[in-house]
Design a protein around this nucleic acid. Structure first.
Lengths: 133, 133
DNA sequence: ATCCCTGCAAAATATTTGCATTCCG
DNA sequence: CGGAATGCAAATATTTTGCAGGGAT
């Protein structure tokens, strides 16, 4: 793999992801980066998010709809509220033994797994309580 | 919810999903359905796949890239080969206790979780053995 | 000086939707 | 008959990519 350059744009993208405690989409980062420099193109942001994720500097979280990114680079699970779309981290450790077990059972070289929980957050539950079906 | 009608198109879409042992994308189903009737529109196929999934007649499998569908309606996990894109079922049961544990810990009403393993299938491992990095 | 990176715009992908018409129940 | 559903096309939404010029090492 070629060596990477440390460009101003790449630095801004990385800083933008690290500055956020939530799970920003590419568009979110695009907006943040442009607050610092309005000339940075969308293509550059997408390219850099992919490069940074591949390099392990950020985590690429794949959720139905839009991809999101995470400054936490350690693998972990996510919880999506299907009511409001809020995405949070699951307070449980990544279970690497699942990968090993599946590798042993299938012959695959299992690199990782993604786990996404879906449900309703307390706020959305309250909002729907009236017309609970 | 309104009552559903049993149209010829809906039947064809459902049959097409059930006829496949793999995990077809919407486009796959579109092609299959059109083999039976070339006039069926893409919009109708997408609409029916969503309706059928919502109704529990088929399973909507959300994978990065394209969404796929599954005739197995029971919740289960998937294994994606990042080399060739092949998607297979994981031979392990769905673990509902994870949902309960997370619900208890977060206050969310957890409906389900999706787990996607990523790795290289035996064929792709063999193909890459030469330039193993 | 290399050649990776950027900006811009167009392209590629995937899915949804408005609307007039059709047809199921 | 009434209202879902369809077909078609246009619209969305998201992400990728070709290309020419620019900048990092």
């Amino acid at each position: 793999m070629a060596q990477l350059r440390n460009t101003r744009q790449r630095r801004l993208v990385l800083d933008a992801v690290r500055a956020r405690c939530d799970h920003p989409s590419a568009e979110d980062i695009c907006a943040d980066v442009r607050a610092a420099d309005a000339h940075i193109s969308r293509g550059t942001v997408y390219r850099n998010l992919n490069i940074l994720a591949r390099g392990g500097d950020i985590l690429h979280v794949k959720v139905p709809g839009v991809d999101r990114f995470d400054r936490r680079t350690q693998l972990h699970y996510h919880l999506l509220c299907t009511g409001c779309g809020k995405l949070t981290d699951v307070p449980a450790p990544y279970d690497a033994s699942l990968d090993e077990a599946l590798a042993a059972g299938t012959g695959y070289r299992v690199a990782r797994h993604r786990m996404l929980f879906e449900g309703l957050c307390p706020d959305c539950q309250a909002a729907r309580r009236p017309d609970e079906k």
